[in-house]
Every structure is written in C-alpha cells, then in structure tokens.
C-alpha cells in the first residue's frame, strides 16, 4: 500500500452539489486521480474522495463528499451537508437548466451548512465551447451577487479543476487565519491537527470536541 506522508495539519470537509449529469463525480475523479472518467455511473447517495493539498505551506487533507444529483436522492443527500467547510456548486455550461437550478442548490447549501462555509460556483464542461448555453459573464455576476467564488472548469481536460478545489481551500484557510472561522465551533468542517510530531496522545485529547456532535 501507500507510504504517503500522513502528516497534514488540517482536514477540510467538502461537498459537491448540483444537478444530475453536470459532472460532479468527474470533477472529483479528475482531482483525485488526474484522469477523466468517460462513462461515469450515476452516484448513489454519496461517494467519497480524499487528497492532500498544500495551502500556504500547510498540508491540508480534503475529505470530499460527492453527492448524487438525482432528485430522488435529494432528501438523503441533504443530510450530508452538515459540517462542510467548503461546497462546490456545479452546473453544466452547455445546459441552461442546470444553471437555472442553482438558486435551489444555493438555498440548500446556505441553510444546511454554517455561515462560514465557503461556496465556489463551478461551470463545468468548459471544453465544450461550441455548445455553450450559459455565458461566463452572467455566471460571474450571479456568483458576485451571492458572494461565491467562481471558476469555469473542465473535468475532461482538467482545466481549472485543481484550482477549483484549491481556491476554496485558500479561502477557508484565510478564514481560519483571520479568525472568522472558529475551529472549535461544532461543524466548522475543519479539524486542526498539531503539525509538530510530539509523540504521545495528542490526537485523542485534541480531536473529539471538533468531531460532529455524537448525540
């Protein structure tokens, strides 16, 4: 198996949301495996991915919850929003309907996460310029009006995929640094682990309060 370094300082929980078929799972796959998955099956409920990235010299482990876009799973996937530090809200630039549904996704994201959750809007399938149905400008404006980060990306070519996850992480890290995100708050979606290996049982002492509520 892997002998990858396990010393990271933070864990951020991300959720990926958006209509069916906008390419949520493909974005995740591209991000974690650096490959494009051409025939991606429908996600049932939620799937997971992890990757360790570096933000301002700090190793951060992203724990990504990739939710199902199908309407029938909506009730189930809503349960998974809690405690997300970042949310990737994805639409398909070639299908206007997926863009039109954003307000409903945004409402869920706002209602079900904490006020500090960083939401990034992602217009996927940017490689299909010829079939574009949503302009960059209008999406940019929507993002600005709602205080969202925004990027157009392509899970197929990999363009901006890395950045999408990174930008959100940077913003979360910035929130931690300037104190607007309270790490000790329940459901901050962030776990901090002391970096310097000091031996002993640090984790057992430091972790439990930051875990999701058990009751």
């Amino acid at each position: 198996m892997t002998t990858a370094p396990y010393n990271y300082s933070y864990i951020f929980k991300y959720i990926i949301i958006g209509d069916m078929g906008v390419g949520k799972s493909c974005l995740l796959h591209q991000f974690t495996e650096k490959k494009f998955m051409a025939d991606c099956p429908h996600t049932i409920g939620v799937e997971f991915g992890t990757r360790i990235i570096e933000v301002s010299g700090q190793k951060v482990k992203l724990q990504i919850w990739d939710t199902a876009g199908q309407e029938r799973f909506r009730a189930v996937t809503r349960s998974y929003y809690r405690g997300a530090a970042g949310a990737l809200m994805v639409y398909d630039i070639t299908r206007r309907s997926t863009y039109n549904h954003l307000s409903s996704w945004l409402t869920d994201a706002r209602n079900l996460t904490n006020p500090n959750t960083v939401i990034i809007l992602i217009g996927n399938k940017a490689d299909l310029e010829a079939q574009r149905d949503v302009t960059y400008e209008e999406a940019k404006q929507f993002a600005e009006e709602n205080g969202l980060l925004f990027l157009e990306a392509s899970a197929k070519t990999g363009e901006n995929v890395e950045d999408a996850f990174l930008e959100a992480a940077k913003k979360i890290y910035q929130n931690i640094q300037d104190g607007s995100l309270d790490l000790n708050a329940a459901e901050s979606g962030v776990q901090h682990k002391p970096t310097a290996p000091q031996g002993g049982r640090l984790s057992s002492d430091a972790q439990p309060p930051k875990e999701g509520c058990s009751c």
Binding site: P5, K193, P197, R201, L202, S203, S204, P208, S214
Partner: peptide, 22 residues
C-alpha cells in the same frame, strides 16, 4: 457509548497516523 463508532475508529486511526509521523 458516548462516542459513535466512527469517532472511535477515527481516533484510533489518527493515533496510528501520529505514530507513523513520529
């Protein structure tokens, strides 16, 4: 029973990670 199974396991895993890092 105050903690959930996943918390228990997470804690154990983190300890292992700590040890590996140490």
């Amino acid at each position: 029973r105050n903690s959930t199974l996943s918390q228990v396991l997470r804690e154990a895993k983190e300890q292992e990670e700590q040890q590996t890092a140490d």
